[in-house]
Simulated assay, not measured.
Amino acid sequence: MDICSVSHRNQLILITALLFCLSYLFGCGTPTFKPNTNRVVNGEDARPHSWPWQISLQVKHGSRFHHTCGGTLIGPRWVLTAGHCIWPGDVYRVVFGEHDMSQQEGTEQIRDVLRIVVHPNWDIDHVGDGNDLALLKLDKSPIMNDNVGLACLPEAGEIPAHGAPCYISGWGNLYTHGPMPDKLQQALLPVVEYSVCSRSDWWGINVKRTMICAGGDTVSGCNGDSGGPLNCMGQDGKWYVQGVTSFVSSRTCNEVKKPTVFTRTSAFIKWIDDTMLHY
């Protein structure tokens, strides 16, 4: 059948079916190298390639590229990251299969960004309003292998339970104003439900229902983790990107009652699906 000859509605049905087939073909949320989830309390080096959907978003300065944010591979040519990671006019690339930034390991794959779609309601001057999301369409899909894979997207509206053991991953600063690590880090961040996180002595009105809080004690995200995933295991044993790292306390990355705040992925499934279908 010539896809150009069918109605727009049927085109969308065909494309949706194709995306479903691709995600089934590649699988999602099932890393070859299982993450170490036994003893992670404070951040530590992640097991190499155990978060195969984790990407390094790099921005061009002069003739070189530098890590600026994290992100998550959610489709063969689509990366989910934070809106505040994107600045008009900057040139970006995406690196897959990365673990140790200090050396070439032979597992890296580099792709150019063909199109950037920032959520239309994101406003850098009003971070507390939420909508801190962007989708990056790649020039071509990375090769899926043991080191590069897809994360699963949650069902629309799904909210992880209070205390659910989720993990942040990224190359962000090890502590406030501290160094950035060479190796990918991970840390256990238990989910803090909205009714707790929105208390006046926690984040108060700064946190919205379209956000998800996690951590809030001695472990948190930090600069450079932005845009990366909050990885939560589903009942099916697969890993889902339940959040996109958005903001931490401006005073210090690790502050009691100031959990890391993520854009809640499940609140934006329709926008994500529509964007991937129409671009």
Rank of each mutant, 00 (worst) to 15 (best):
Q109T: 14
R115Q: 14
Y167V: 06
G157W: 09
M180A: 09
D139I: 12
C166S: 01
P165W: 10
S200P: 00
A187I: 00
L133F: 13
G157Y: 08
I143F: 12
E98V: 12
S102L: 00
L174R: 11
P181W: 01
V127F: 14
A161K: 14
N147E: 14
R199V: 03
R199L: 11
K183A: 13
N131H: 11
L136Y: 08
G157E: 12
T107A: 13
S141G: 04
Q103H: 10
E108K: 01
T107D: 05
G163Y: 09
V191D: 04
V192L: 07
S102H: 02
Q186P: 03
L136E: 15
P190Q: 05
G97S: 13
V148N: 05
G106E: 14
D123N: 11
V117L: 05
E155H: 10
Q103K: 13
G97D: 08
G149V: 11
P142F: 15
M180E: 08
D112W: 13
A161D: 15
L153V: 03
A156H: 01
W122Q: 02
M144S: 07
L153Q: 02
A164R: 09
R199A: 08
D129S: 11
D100K: 06
V94F: 11
G170H: 06
K183G: 06
A156C: 02
R93M: 11
S141R: 12
E158M: 10
I110G: 03
G157P: 03
P190R: 04
L135V: 02
D112S: 13
S169V: 15
P142M: 10
D125I: 01
Q103F: 10
Y167A: 06
E108H: 01
L153W: 01
N121T: 05
E155K: 13
I124N: 09
E155P: 04
L136M: 09
P179I: 07
L136G: 07
S195W: 00
R199E: 12
R93A: 11
D146F: 06
M101F: 10
D129R: 13
Q186C: 01
S169Q: 08
D132I: 04
R199N: 06
G97R: 04
L153Y: 00
G149L: 09
L133A: 04
H162A: 12
L189R: 02
C166L: 05
Q109C: 14
L153N: 03
L174I: 10
H126K: 14
Y167W: 15
D139K: 07
Y175L: 05
G178D: 06
G178E: 02
L174W: 08
P179L: 08
Y175I: 00
N173R: 13
S141N: 00
K183D: 08
D123M: 05
